[in-house]
């Protein structure tokens, strides 16, 4: 299935989503409030459920944060990239760890590196950063560490 066909199929279900076909795969931007519902629908999507979450990450655009979910259907190999924009000062989004188990670890990583708060996450503790690390999120663009960071 090419991007065009996939877009038509998905657009019928997700009316609030904005689509973008310029990239390698079909991009779909959904509002943060709808994300959990969209995720559940995608996971049980008709004859090609998107059951393989192969990449979950976040991008800091300095004005906003964007969550990026790369989803793929094992049965048909269709891939869709879901993006969710978040408020940079108070980033909050529903966790999808119950839907795709791999999200558990990836969300913990994003949480500590970008400071995104995942609601209803089963176990949102520090994964990589040392004990007692508070507040500052290293992967954000404005993170400064004069001791350990070497500017090139």
């Amino acid at each position: 299935m090419n991007k065009e066909e996939l877009k038509i199929k998905l657009a019928a279900t997700f009316t609030t989503a904005a689509f973008d076909e310029s990239g390698q795969w079909l991009n779909m931007t959904v509002p943060a409030a709808d994300w959990l519902q969209v995720a559940q629908l995608l996971r049980n999507f008709g004859d090609f459920p998107f059951d393989y979450l192969f990449c979950l990450t976040c991008i800091d655009w300095k004005t906003k944060l964007t969550m990026v979910y790369h989803l793929s259907a094992i049965s048909t190999r269709d891939t869709v990239v879901v993006k969710v924009d978040l408020d940079r000062n108070n980033p909050e989004i529903e966790s999808v760890a119950q839907i795709w188990k791999t999200a558990n670890f990836h969300e913990r990583e994003v949480c500590e590196l970008f400071g995104v708060n995942f609601l209803n996450h089963p176990d949102l503790r520090l994964l990589i950063l040392p004990d007692g690390w508070e507040g500052r999120n290293p992967m954000r663009k404005d993170f400064e560490d004069p001791v350990n960071m070497i500017k090139l």
Partner: peptide, 25 residues
Amino acid sequence: YIVSEGGTTPYRIKFRSPGFSNLSA
């Protein structure tokens, strides 16, 4: 996963490493 803003350095880069997901299982 490279996000480019058109410059000489990547704006954001993400390595989806196999070990990370395998560890979670």
